[in-house]
Design a protein around this nucleic acid. Structure first.
Lengths: 333, 333
DNA sequence: ATGAAAGCGCTAACAG
DNA sequence: CTGTTAGCGCTTTCAT
């Protein structure tokens, strides 16, 4: 920068202002051009570390995630956050904790030492969490999680809306005896999807309980086993809503073994819309999509808002889960 | 830090050395303890931006990737790099380019402005690339890619070894008529897997050409269609090696439709070992795993080595692809 | 409209 | 063994 100033025949102060368009209207237009030209000539690149020391802004956002790699959704969330950050001139500094609270505290500390401007705290499989003490006054937005008291901004998928969406595909086709295959794992998503399904089926005048099967985990294998049980019952459902795509994959196998054609004999809908599964199954699986990309974007936008205005009231947002419609639904036979 | 020094009754220089264990043996043990205690007392956290300005080291590594989100492998690579970096006190600054060279140059520039200590350049689906000019003298390691001239350190999967590994599962069980269903997309992986398969089948005294099917893309649907063609041929293979797990999923469907039981009537092996597919298929699919986690780790270790010794000779590494053995292989009937 | 100078928080060279 | 001082590269008063 000193070189640039010298080359343009001005002081470093002037050079800085010319390059950053700061200092109001005190820089003459041709001075600014001269400085710009000199900078381009010399291939000048600002040192943001020095700038950060002075301005106390690093243009970096910390992303701390539960388990960045394991879940394929995480990638989309990161991507959304990344894109929004980059558009605003920010970069993402990533830390993965294995879900361990101590590690999370440590990660937050490591980011704060690096003077990040704010933190995105992502908990895979949206849960109710407390903002860690280590956060202190660092601006923070929760991703796929929320606080019990609404003290921090957060964004979660609208699980209820998504469930109603895929169920509407079924009821719209004329189904009322709609089964549900789900997991016993106590995650937020399970509870909402299950409860919403219960309500909706009851509204159709059908008792949901005989149409419910619960298994230990949300795996393909257990989805298969659960479906075998459900489809063997006397008044078997004409359609099944699966907790997620992996379980749906098992339901497909069970249907095939029982000689039930999808969708002619059995309609199937699901949740997650995983790229590797839902479109790859045959026939393509209708599934409610988790809007992770958009959630990532939203979180960054909200974080930037809070950086501008630390007094702004926290916002709790529910992101819609659009239905990806494919070929797994037909009229009941 | 000034506060800590004052509280301990020493100068900031002494405090700095006491906390960082620098300056050789010039700090007395009880002085150091006194400083440490004061720091802990005050909850002192170093400002790494100021430190970075002084030391010209930021303890941050730039990770620039082709398409971080889209491919599920990327997550594992990032995770590996992340873990190794963190163990050494480094954090990852991520930038995703959509594979666009101009964006890549820009990303490298953005990272350099932030004074990262080095860059990991990841190209999904390993390719031969040139190190971008923008890299300048920034230390850099290529991930899942390599240069034509070996001028940069790089790590790629050992595709040939992995292919031989899964083929050995088949030949070991007694198969010689081994088909191959692959894509026409011109990626490095396709060429190596195809060529290795050709050689190996020829070594078994079988002409590979009638056992080969190529389709436009490596999708489940086209894998299905390709398998229908292959399995309808007069001298149909007793086993199939698929380009990847997604295609294998299609092969499973084709076999089911043709009334061929896997593995009794047809053995199947594949490549990628995708978590969502290979163990979820029925029966479990034997597949060569892409060692992305280990590649990520290796790249960071290598980068740190180059930071220590910028004159070190570049290394090209091939990471083994272990075979994940499941239930899709049996003796030919 | 511009320049001089101070200082962000830290480390490293130089004195003692 | 410890303190003083200079300075990393930038921004931002303050004075002109």
């Amino acid at each position: 920068m000193a070189d640039v100033a010298r080359a343009a025949g001005v002081s470093t102060a002037t050079a800085s202002m010319a390059l950053n368009d700061t200092g109001g209207r005190r820089i003459g237009p041709e001075t600014r051009e001269r400085v710009r030209a000199a900078a381009a000539e010399l291939g000048y690149r600002p040192n943001t570390v020095a700038r950060g020391l002075r301005t106390r802004r690093t243009q970096m956002i910390g992303f701390v995630g539960d388990d960045v790699a394991t879940t394929p959704f995480a990638g989309q969330m990161i991507r959304g956050a990344h894109d929004a950050a980059r558009e605003a001139g920010f970069l993402l500094l990533m830390v993965d904790t294995s879900g361990d609270p101590a590690e999370t505290e440590e990660a937050i500390g490591a980011l704060q030492e690096r003077q990040i401007d704010g933190i995105l705290l992502a908990t895979m499989y949206h849960q109710v969490v407390a903002v860690p003490d280590a956060m202190g006054s660092t601006p923070c937005v929760l991703l796929d999680a929320r606080t019990a008291d609404g003290s921090a901004s957060s964004v979660v998928p609208d699980e209820r809306g998504g469930t109603l969406g895929v169920l509407a595909e079924l009821t719209g086709a004329g189904h009322v005896r709609i089964g549900h295959v789900t997991t016993r794992e106590q995650v937020q998503a399970r509870a909402v999807r299950l409860e919403t399904w219960r309500e909706r089926v009851a509204e159709c005048g059908v008792d949901p309980e005989p149409l419910l099967v619960e298994v230990e985990h949300a795996t393909t294998q257990l989805g298969y086993e659960g479906a075998l049980v459900l489809l063997a019952r006397p008044d078997r459902p004409t359609a099944v809503f699966c907790f997620n795509d992996r379980m749906a994959m098992g339901v497909y196998r069970a249907a095939a073994e029982l000689g039930l054609a999808i969708p002619a004999d059995l309609s199937v809908v699901s949740y997650d819309d995983q790229e590797l599964i839902a479109p790859a199954l045959h026939p393509g699986l209708t599934s409610a999509a988790l809007p992770h990309y958009d959630m990532g974007r939203w979180a960054v936008v909200e974080l930037l808002r809070r950086l501008d205005d630390p007094e702004a009231a926290p916002v709790q947002h529910r992101m819609p889960c659009p239905v990806a419609r494919r070929q797994s639904v037909a009229k009941p036979r």
